[in-house]
């Protein structure tokens, strides 16, 4: 697992419930805006269908590094906070490291405890989607396509 994500897991799992809520809110507030070249491409192809709120993921590959950008509305701070954790924890990490992130990430972040089991389902969908997009981006490169990002 990438070191940056490891550090976030450590921070959240050591926090008590109220601190964890506040940390997740901080992550939601600090999600960087999409780069301009991507902001115009918040379309169905980049929308995470598993989420009720509009969540957009952009996964690109440069060499063996992944570049990850995302957007979600501030009115849905839970998913925005989680997406922000993924961006901060995974952006710039190697493809291999990202694919090695275990699917129980949400449990290890201690999120079910503050969100309840029903609410973490959609979040799992984001992580699955991110990995699937990453694999697609790698394959697209191998096929000679230079990027999976939308071409303006």
């Amino acid at each position: 697992m990438p070191a940056a994500l490891d550090a976030i897991v450590a921070e959240l799992s050591e926090a008590d419930k109220q601190e964890r809520i506040e940390l997740l809110i901080d992550f939601a507030k600090n999600l960087p805006p999409l780069p301009e070249r991507l902001a115009a491409h918040k379309d169905a192809a980049h929308r995470v269908e598993e989420c009720q709120s509009p969540v957009f993921l952009f996964v690109e590959v440069d060499g063996d590094r992944a570049e990850i950008h995302a957007d979600a509305p501030i009115e849905a701070p839970t998913v925005r906070g989680f997406v922000s954790i993924l961006v901060e924890g995974l952006n710039g990490a190697s493809v291999e490291d990202i694919l090695s992130v275990r699917n129980d990430l949400i449990d290890r972040l201690g999120l079910p405890e503050i969100l309840g089991m029903l609410r973490v389902r959609g979040l799992n969908g984001v992580l699955h989607r991110l990995k699937a997009d990453l694999v697609r981006a790698v394959n697209a490169r191998a096929d000679g396509d230079s990027t999976s990002a939308p071409n303006p």
Binding site: I21, E22, L24, I25, A28, Q52, E75, A76, P77, T78, V79, G81, I114, L115, G116, R119
Partner: peptide, 9 residues
């Protein structure tokens, strides 16, 4: 709320 963080925001 649907989103349990909203109150705390």
């Amino acid at each position: 709320d649907e989103d349990v963080l909203l109150y705390d925001m």
